[in-house]
């Protein structure tokens, strides 16, 4: 569904996360049991290609005995979850950088399609003390560097620490009630520092189709701040919230009602208030998050020596 939408939308970021019935799913919740450690970063890079630079990755880590049983592995638990997540992010980032931006040269004179000096082995190995079975990934990636260079990596604030803050581009913040959300955003920002975007998560139930939001509110099972009310009320609430947060991630009660009925909820109202930036036509997801496009970590590294791949 993510790639399907990539073919038909132009300006929204497309995020891949676990437990979606999409052909593309990659996150620590699932992958500690997956053998194909190196196929998923290229899959995410491919989503970046098919979407014109709008892919991102929400890293999650949770115990998932059912997912483990499906692929015949024992469930990852406790501290190992964070280590798995951190290792997965590191492998992905190395693979995304393993082709420098200008590696495809198409030099007819020398007959070279790629400049081998601009390809790099990832040579990842799990660190000493890694809780699960250690592993290694050779590289380089099987696909050139993603259009965004590095896909934005997002993770829940609760995962930061286990996954180093330097490894993520944005943290996702939630709170038990809408009223507590702004304070939580402030706390997290103080913890993660200035270089990381802070995105607040909010369930949304709107008055729609002649039905009051409160009457539809039972759709959520709680646990995350839920806004219940009119589209205009939501715009007011978000305008305030966006004074603290760099972005909001809305979880509509119904994809059809909340998204289609009033248009993107409150978006027009927010733009009028100047709380939401104008639509970035053809911008990348990094652009949307206000992130620079990073250079490859290998850009000035020495080339792959002959024989290194044996």
């Amino acid at each position: 569904m993510r790639p399907l939408r990539a073919g038909q939308t132009r300006s929204s970021g497309l995020l891949s996360r676990d437990r979606c019935p999409e052909p593309l799913r990659w996150c620590p919740r699932w992958t500690p049991y997956i053998r194909s450690r190196s196929t998923s970063p290229p899959r995410l890079a491919s989503l970046d290609y098919v979407s014109g630079g709008r892919a991102g990755w929400i890293v999650t880590a949770a115990e998932a005995p059912e997912a483990a049983a499906a692929v015949g592995r024992s469930s990852v638990t406790g501290a190992a979850l964070g280590q798995e997540a951190a290792a997965s992010v590191e492998v992905s980032r190395r693979l995304w950088d393993s082709w420098e931006d200008d590696a495809v040269i198409r030099d007819v004179g020398t007959g070279r399609y790629i400049d081998v000096d601009k390809l790099h082995y990832a040579d990842f190995e799990t660190p000493a003390g890694f809780a699960g079975p250690g592993y290694s990934v050779k590289g380089p990636s099987i696909i050139p560097r993603p259009l965004q260079g590095q896909l934005p990596v997002l993770a829940a604030a609760s995962l930061i620490g286990e996954v180093p803050v330097e490894a993520v581009d944005a943290v996702l913040v939630s709170a038990p009630t809408p009223e507590l959300l702004a304070a939580e955003v402030r706390d997290v920002r103080a913890r993660v520092g200035a270089g990381v975007a802070v995105v607040a998560g909010l369930d949304v139930v709107l008055d729609a189709r002649g039905q009051a939001a409160a009457a539809r509110g039972a759709l959520f099972d709680g646990g995350r701040a839920a806004f219940t009310g009119s589209a205009d009320g939501l715009a007011d609430f978000l305008a305030d919230l966006l004074k603290e947060a760099d972005g909001v991630r809305l979880h509509p009660a119904s994809l059809f009602v909340e998204i289609e009925e009033p248009g993107p909820p409150g978006a027009a109202g927010l733009r009028r208030r100047g709380a939401l930036r104008p639509v970035l036509q053809d911008g990348t997801f990094r652009d949307l998050l206000g992130l620079e496009r990073p250079a490859s970590r290998y850009a000035s590294a020495p080339a792959v020596p002959a024989g290194a791949g044996k």
Binding site: P3, L4, G7, L24, Y49, Y113, V304
Partner: peptide, 28 residues
């Protein structure tokens, strides 16, 4: 990636997107 004399092979087209991701986009 295919290799040639111990390094990635430079002369042919290489670097393909993931099949299922691309096909899902093509489905639309």
């Amino acid at each position: 990636l295919r290799e040639h004399l111990g390094r990635p092979h430079a002369l042919d087209v290489v670097g393909r997107p993931d099949a299922q991701t691309m096909l899902a986009a093509l489905a639309s």
